[in-house]
Design a protein around this nucleic acid. Structure first.
Ligand SMILES: [Zn+2]
Ligand SMILES: [Zn+2]
Ligand SMILES: [Zn+2]
Ligand SMILES: [Zn+2]
Lengths: 136, 136
DNA sequence: TCTTGACTTTGAAGTTACTTCAAGGTTGAT
DNA sequence: ATCAACCTTGAAGTAACTTCAAAGTCAAGA
């Protein structure tokens, strides 16, 4: 039996996050003591840790809820799980490509200035102010 | 002289965004007609386009405000601009590295399952449920 | 026993950068 | 006159939390 702070330490997240997960029904309502404190068993903490691992993989709260539902039906086929992972991987890969485009543009901007001029002659601001920006 | 929708079309963002930028003081209050409509000049629209380009580069609202302040002082040295660009580039590169780690983990998870088993035997959920996760 | 500090509770508001909505006024064309 | 397409405002919704205030609880030391 653990208090919320102990559960938080074991699962590796703040206590406020546990309360939040309960509020949005990602986790079931915790058992309460006579003092109204929440108390957790090892199994509860494992479920919480599962949630944290999935969140660290970038899954949304809704997707984590899907994963939990799937994990709760051991006899169903697992293709739903595989689909969730694949979808998440695609979205991460897409975001990486977007950010790489961004980084390339920022490096291009950087090369437009050596940092030794008055702003009026700065190639960076000139580029940012250029109406033909989108052609580049 | 352009209405807000015309300015939005020219600058390439929704009208609601222009109102928002005005509300948070990223842009000065627009001139108003007797009907209380906002009206914009070409210079206003260029400033708005500058903002949109900077936002597309991933700069926060605050950073864009910094860029605008710098652009408004043509006689100052431009090293402040260069610093902002470098900082933004670093944060984009950092985010890319984080996402690449994520993608690698997701691919590793994917390889733990061929999608043809009942969930009880799914390597993905087994990995997500594994307390030794962090060692991997 | 008393006190102190660390813990717990709740609901509400703050965060980021917008978007969406409701309710109502204006414009321009047919 | 009427109609669509504008415009106005303030408030609320979005994602996933975090922070805060006010108040109750617990354990340990003096
Ligand atoms: Zn320069
Ligand atoms: Zn420069
Ligand atoms: Zn499998
Ligand atoms: Zn599987």
């Amino acid at each position: 039996m653990f208090t919320i702070a102990q559960a938080a330490r074991r699962a590796g997240c703040p206590a406020s996050t546990i309360r939040y997960y309960e509020r949005v029904r990602l986790l079931p309502s915790a058992r309460r003591g006579t003092n109204d404190y929440r108390y957790y068993e090892v199994a509860d903490i494992e479920r919480l840790a599962f949630v944290n691992r999935a969140r660290q993989l970038g899954f949304s709260i809704d997707a984590v809820a899907d994963l939990l539902r799937l994990a709760d039906h051991p006899h169903s086929p697992c293709d739903g799980v595989d689909t969730l992972i694949a979808t998440q991987l695609h979205s991460v890969e897409k975001r990486i490509r977007q950010l790489q485009t961004l980084a390339a543009r920022l490096r291009q901007l950087q090369s437009a200035c050596d940092g030794e001029h008055p702003i009026r002659e700065c190639g960076i601001l000139a580029a940012l102010s250029d109406t033909r920006w989108n052609e580049a």
